[in-house]
Amino acid sequence: MILFQRKIIYMGYAPPGARAETINPSDPLLQRMKWEEIDLESEEGVCLKGMVLQKQKQSTRASAPTIILYLQGNAGNTLHRLPVFEKLLNTTKTSDVAIFAVAPRSYWLSSSRTPSEKGFLQDYRSALLYAAKRWPHSPLVLYGHSLGGSVAVCLLSTLKLEPETRRIKGLILENAFISVPEMVRTLYPYRWLPYYHLGPFVWDRWDVLRAIKEAGKESLLRRIGQGMLIINSEKDEIVPLWMGDAMCNTVKASFRDTSGRPPTRRVIIPTALHENAWRRREWSVAVGAYLDECAEKDRNDS
């Protein structure tokens, strides 16, 4: 498990065929959305594949749409999440959104480079800067599911408020975990199991609580973290609810909100599992309201 730990954490190869699947324009889901295939470069010559998705019929609102940078979980590819994206596009009431979903290295049609914490941070930083340059008048919101949520927190902790990042207005975390070592202990809870004691040997820790505690005064995480939205599935069979509690408590203890925004919100989706919270009405209501709030904040700040 130590030698092949990155195969366990980063499962871009699952399900079989996920690395070779191509866009099918005749897919009924894609026909209900306006979509665009994207290729962009990360650092060290890594090429990333992504998609931009919007509603098929655009509204007549004058304001620029909110851009959601979607950071996926540890398996599958962008195409597998099309049902989630279609639902996400229809959550808002007073603003428009577009989804920018990028596959990091070793996922989907992106470069076959060894995945790592450093590499993922490079890839998603490149995606974020691409989004900021392409949509300079749009507010940006990071949406991370599972591993993607942990990546989003660690990414924002490394970024500072600069011209290209000033439009980042929000952060949504869905069923994110607090660290890989804690997940090891959660999945193998008995001390007599050798796996329980593998935490110190983890290479990519994705330590969310540490990222929150150590976020500097100029960190983007400190600037927007107090107003994030944390979503947890009540029946999550992978990430336990107490990890969401730990995130909320650490944010409250570490950040002082000076933005005037509502504090960090925690929404628990009744009966939902790790992968299906998006099917519940409570998810749509919480996410839609948060995105509308981010758009309104952006208009007030402009």
Rank of each mutant, 00 (worst) to 15 (best):
I178T: 15
P115T: 07
E41R: 00
D301F: 12
R261K: 03
P139C: 08
T92H: 03
K217S: 13
L155P: 06
L53P: 03
P16R: 11
E36V: 01
M33H: 10
W192R: 00
K169I: 02
L69R: 00
N24S: 14
E36H: 07
G170V: 08
E21Y: 12
V46T: 15
C248F: 12
D245K: 14
N276Q: 04
K217E: 15
S95T: 14
S59M: 04
R279Q: 10
V285G: 00
S95R: 13
S59Y: 04
R61Q: 13
A98G: 05
L209E: 04
T91D: 02
A18N: 14
I168M: 11
L140I: 15
A215W: 10
V239N: 04
N300R: 10
V102Y: 00
G225W: 11
Q56K: 13
L30Y: 09
W135R: 03
R81M: 07
Q58P: 01
G260Q: 12
F85Q: 02
F255A: 09
L198A: 09
P262R: 09
Q226A: 14
W206D: 10
G244E: 04
G199N: 07
S219P: 03
T250H: 03
V287G: 06
W278G: 04
M183P: 03
H197I: 03
D27M: 07
F201T: 08
S284I: 01
P136K: 03
V97F: 02
A62S: 15
K217C: 11
Q54K: 15
D207G: 07
A75N: 07
N77M: 06
P25S: 06
P115K: 08
K160A: 10
R281H: 13
N300F: 06
L88W: 06
R223D: 03
F255Q: 07
R61E: 07
K169T: 10
G17N: 12
L30K: 05
A215M: 01
Q58H: 12
